[in-house]
Amino acid sequence: MTSNKPYLIRAFYDWILDNDLTPYIAVDANYPNVMVPEQYIDDGQIVLNIAPASVGAISMTGDVIEFSARFGGKVQSLYVPFEAVGAIYARENGVGSSFDIEYPEEVEEVLEQVETPKPEKKGKPTLSIVK
Rank of each mutant, 00 (worst) to 15 (best):
A51C: 12
N4A: 09
M1W: 06
S128H: 12
V85Q: 04
I101K: 00
V95G: 06
P119N: 07
T2L: 11
L21I: 08
G86F: 04
P52I: 15
P52T: 15
P81L: 06
L48K: 09
G123P: 11
I129Y: 10
P32Y: 10
K121F: 13
I25R: 00
V64R: 12
L8C: 05
E66N: 13
I9C: 02
G73S: 07
K131R: 14
E102W: 02
V64D: 09
K74C: 06
N49T: 07
Y24R: 09
V47G: 03
P32I: 15
S97D: 02
N33A: 14
D28Y: 09
F67T: 08
L17V: 14
Y79Q: 08
A57K: 15
P125Y: 12
A53T: 12
V110C: 01
E83I: 00
S3I: 06
N49K: 10
I65V: 15
Y40E: 15
Y79L: 11
P6Q: 05
I16P: 05
S98Y: 11
Q113P: 01
L8T: 05
S128K: 14
I41R: 04
G62E: 03
V47W: 04
I88D: 04
E115Y: 08
D18T: 11
P117C: 08
T61Y: 04
S54D: 04
V114H: 03
D43T: 06
P23D: 01
D18W: 04
K5S: 00
F12N: 03
D42M: 15
G96Y: 03
D43H: 10
V114S: 07
G56T: 08
A57P: 10
Q45I: 13
M60W: 01
A87N: 04
D18K: 12
I129W: 10
G72F: 05
I46D: 01
Y7N: 14
T126M: 14
A87F: 07
Y31L: 07
Y40K: 12
E92V: 02
G56E: 14
M60E: 02
N33S: 15
E66F: 06
K118A: 14
D18N: 14
A11L: 12
F82Y: 05
I46Q: 01
N30P: 07
E92F: 02
N30W: 03
K5D: 00
S98E: 12
A29C: 09
K118G: 07
K131M: 15
M35P: 01
V95L: 11
A87E: 06
I58C: 06
A87Q: 09
T61L: 06
R91W: 11
I41N: 10
K74S: 11
V107H: 02
E105K: 09
I129V: 13
A29G: 09
G44D: 04
Y7E: 13
E108Y: 03
P119V: 02
I129R: 05
F99I: 05
E66C: 10
A90K: 08
P125G: 07
Y31I: 02
K121Q: 15
G96I: 02
I46T: 05
G73F: 03
V27G: 00
S3M: 07
I65Q: 01
S97A: 15
D42G: 07
V34I: 09
A69N: 08
F71G: 09
Q45C: 12
V34F: 03
Y31M: 09
L17P: 01
I25E: 00
T2W: 08
L111Y: 05
A51K: 12
A84E: 00
R70V: 14
D14H: 08
K118S: 13
V75N: 11
